[in-house]
Amino acid sequence: MPSSNPAGSVADRAAAIAAVHAGREGPLLPVLHDVQAAFGHIPADAVPAIAAALNLSRAEVHGVVTFYHDFRTAPAGRRVVKLCRAEACQAAGGAAVAEALLARLGIGWGGTTADGAVTVEAVYCLGLCACAPAALVDGAPAGRLDAEALAAAVQA
């Protein structure tokens, strides 16, 4: 539902981001990445604005937003931890490291702590398999993790 001022500015900003990429071939993913970088998620009001700017239907944009794991429809915590659950990290004890972090934070996979400090997301391989278990903490790689090292990386 369209609302007044703040929503209008979301739509305007999203439309401006879309306009930057409109001349590229298949611009939707670069647009969505930039919108998420600007807002921390893909706000609902951004979807019709992006659709209009790229001559797509709202359903097409919604379909793409919801297909990809990266795109969020609500803001994440201030720190995002992407923790690998795939086979190589499992072989190096990753499951126990993950369980310890989630238990300490009191959240499940994909959850955000009540104070909004930390979101923990599952990923399936970061290409850091030879220094497993591994994570990305706000985009910075961390490897050879044990429960203590991961807790320190999350708190740092």
């Binding site: 993913l29 794991h69 795109f71």
Partner: peptide, 23 residues
């Protein structure tokens, strides 16, 4: 171009759809 966290996009035709801005 940067993917968006979908393993299946490593399959070549899914990758092409993703490059075109589709699911």
């Amino acid at each position: 171009r940067v993917g968006a966290g979908a393993y299946v996009c490593g399959e070549e035709t899914a990758l092409l759809n993703s490059l075109e801005g589709r699911r």
